[in-house]
């Protein structure tokens, strides 16, 4: 009798636990009604935000079928490194086959690899990688200095408040995102060119020296910012350590 009671009790507890866990997993978002075969980025990749802040634009991805048309009601899930949060993190695509989420980056400065995934009817996972940049304090100071001193020549795009001077220059300056060129230059070279102007590296004198205007710390911040936004990403030259 005693043993039977214990057995029944155990079964009840197990059932309750199972029920609870089932409830938790099924409570996430509406159930998918359709499936696509491809996942593409619509907008929101490669944004620059601050640490711990929501990115200025939401991230939008689209689930496509074989013909490249958007699929409505397909499941999408976002994942990211620690500290990144999505609002919402998962759900189904809207009528145009798109899924929109607001991304809040973590509290560390750096590049964040975000993953979006959907799955086909056969439960095969389709993944998409996105990259976002979080500026720390130092890089944010760099961004501010860029806006004040560098942007007008180094950024070919104009805004109503700031007309670009890029087109007026005979020797075209490099955009700070031009990783292919800037990544090949060492920190010392870039510091020299910022401090002493183009002629320091036998380049155009149209680039004036800022070493007597900016503090050393400000030049370092500018450098940190340039390295952070370069595309492809900057990998410092020098010793690489083999992890055991």
């Amino acid at each position: 009798m005693m043993r039977q009671t214990i057995l029944v009790g155990l079964i009840v507890i197990c059932a309750a636990l199972w029920g609870c866990t089932r409830k938790n997993t099924s409570a996430v978002g509406p159930t998918p009604t359709a499936f696509g075969t491809a996942l593409v980025e619509s907008s929101g990749g490669k944004q620059i935000g601050g640490v711990g802040t929501t990115l200025p634009q939401p991230v939008v991805v689209q689930v496509n079928d074989d013909q490249g048309n958007g699929v409505a009601g397909a499941p999408v899930e976002f994942t990211g490194p620690r500290g990144v949060s999505f609002d919402p993190a998962s759900g189904v695509t809207d009528s145009s086959g798109q899924f929109t989420t607001n991304v809040m980056l973590g509290s560390m400065a750096g590049r964040y690899q975000l993953g979006a995934s959907t799955h086909t009817k056969a439960q095969k996972s389709v993944d998409l990688k996105l990259e976002e940049i979080a500026l720390g304090d130092q890089e944010r100071l760099g961004a501010h200095l860029d806006e004040t001193y560098c942007n007008r020549c180094h950024n070919p795009e104009s805004t109503p408040e700031r007309v670009s001077n890029y087109d007026n220059l005979e020797v075209k300056p490099h955009s700070f995102t031009e990783g292919d060129t800037l990544n090949k230059m060492s920190d010392a070279d870039l510091t020299a060119i910022i401090s002493h102007g183009g002629p320091a590296l036998n380049k155009s004198p149209l680039m004036p020296p800022y070493g007597y205007t900016l503090k050393k710390m400000e030049i370092q911040a500018l450098l940190a910012y340039i390295r952070m936004v370069s595309d492809p990403p900057y990998r410092p030259a020098g010793t690489y350590y083999v992890q055991k």
Partner: peptide, 21 residues
């Protein structure tokens, strides 16, 4: 025009210089 390359930001000769920072 050469050492300080002021024409990158300023216009002295409207025909040749274009800088308008």
């Amino acid at each position: 025009y050469s050492k300080y390359a002021c024409q990158s930001c300023h216009i002295v000769d409207p025909k040749a210089d274009k800088g308008y920072v």
